[in-house]
Design a protein around this nucleic acid. Structure first.
Lengths: 186, 186
DNA sequence: TAACTATACGGAGGCGCCCTCCGTTTGGCA
DNA sequence: TGCCAAACGGAGGGCGCCTCCGTATAGTTA
C-alpha cells in the first residue's frame, strides 16, 4: 500500500509543482502592490505562465487568495522553526515578531482581501491561528526555559496582541511604534 | 442672502433628485441580493435610468456604496424619530431594534462591502455611530423616563451589543436568537 | 405663455478583464 | 526510446466598466 492508495498513482509533474510556487509568489507580489482587485492576467504574466495554468491551479480568485494566505502562514511557521535552531532564544523571538510586522507592512494591499477570505472561511482562520500559536509557543517556551523572559504569558495572548497592534495599520508610523513595543516587551 | 449664496443659484432639477433616490433604492436591492460585485448596469436597469445617470450621481462604485450606507443609516434615524411619536416607549425601542436585525438580515450581501467602506473611511464610521447612538439614546431615554426599563445602560453599550450580535450573521439561526435576546433584554 | 439655456438624461462604443476550451508540449514511466 | 497522461499556453467570446456627446427637459425670464 505504501503511501499511495494504488499502483496507478503517479508522481506530480515537476513543472506543475514549480508553476504553482511561481504563481503563489507572483500573486503575493501583485496583490500586495495593486490591491485585491489586481488583474489575474497580471499575476500570470508576473509568474511567467499562461493564464490557463493559473486557472488550472486556482479555479477562482478566492482559491488563489486562500492559497496565498496559507502560504504566508506556512512561511511564518517555517521561519519560526528555523530561528529556533539558529538563534539565541530571545533573539529568535524578537526576530520572528519583527518578521511579522514586516510582512504586514509589505502586503498592505492584501490585508483587506485576506480579512474577507478569513471571515468567510472559519477553517482557514482556525488553521492559521493554530499554526501561528504553535510557532509562537515554541519560541516562547525556549525563551522562558532560558530564563530570559517572564513566564506569565501565553502564546495566544501574544498572538492577539500582535494582531491587535497590526490592526492600526492605517495610522502613520504604526510600524515604528509596533516594533518599538515589541522591543520593549521582549 | 437667504439660503443661497448668490442669486444665480438654481433649484436642483426635480428629475435629478428623483433619480438619485431611485438609484439608491435600486442599489440597496441589487447589492443586497447579488453581493457587492453585482453589476452597476444592473443597478441602473433596476432603477429604470441610463447607466450614464448612475455615473453622474455616483462617479465610483465606492461612492455608491457610501451613499447607500448613509441612506440606510439615515432611514434608521428617521424610523427612530417616527417611532418616538407613534409608539409606547418600550414598544418603540423593541421595534427599532427588530428593524435593525431585519435590515442586517435583508442586506446580507452588502455587509462585506459596507465593512470595507467603513474601514477605509473613518468619518463614515463616526457619522453612523453618532447618528445611531442618538437614535438609541432618544428611545432609551423615553423608556427609562416611563420607568419601563433599567437605567444603568448607555446608548453606546446597547449599540455595541447589537452590532456584536449581528456579527454572528453567518451562524444558522442567528436571526431568531438575536431577536430572542432583544426581547428578553427589553 | 413662449422662448431660452443650464442641467440632466440615455446609451452606444471602446477597452480591458474574466474564464473556457482545445491543440500542443512535456515530464514520468516502462 | 517510445508512449501517453498530465500539464501548458493563449486565442477568443462574453461581459462589465466608464466616457462622451447628441438629445430632452426643468426652471427661469420676458
Amino acid at each position: 500500500m505504501g503511501s499511495q492508495s494504488a499502483k496507478t498513482a503517479r508522481r506530480p509533474r515537476s513543472d506543475s509543482v514549480r508553476n504553482r510556487e511561481l504563481l503563489l509568489e507572483a500573486a503575493a507580489a501583485v496583490f500586495g502592490g495593486g490591491g485585491p482587485d489586481a488583474s489575474l492576467d497580471a499575476v500570470a504574466k508576473q509568474a511567467g505562465v499562461g493564464i490557463g495554468t493559473l486557472y488550472r491551479h486556482f479555479p477562482t480568485r478566492e482559491a488563489l487568495f486562500e492559497a496565498v494566505y496559507r502560504h504566508e502562514v506556512d512561511q511564518l511557521g517555517e521561519l519560526a522553526e528555523r530561528l529556533a535552531t539558529e538563534a539565541a532564544p530571545v533573539d529568535a523571538l524578537r526576530r520572528w515578531l519583527h518578521a511579522n510586522v514586516q510582512l504586514v507592512a509589505t502586503k498592505k494591499g492584501m490585508l483587506a482581501a485576506l480579512a474577507l477570505a478569513a471571515q468567510s472561511r472559519p477553517e482557514l482562520y482556525a488553521y492559521s491561528f493554530e499554526r501561528l500559536t504553535k510557532a509562537i509557543g515554541s519560541l516562547l517556551d525556549r525563551a522562558v526555559a532560558a530564563g530570559d523572559i517572564r513566564q506569565d504569558i501565553t502564546p495566544e495572548e501574544l498572538l492577539r496582541a500582535l494582531v491587535g497592534m497590526c490592526y492600526m495599520h492605517d495610522q502613520p508610523g504604526w510600524q515604528r511604534s509596533v516594533l518599538h513595543l515589541v522591543d520593549i516587551f521582549v
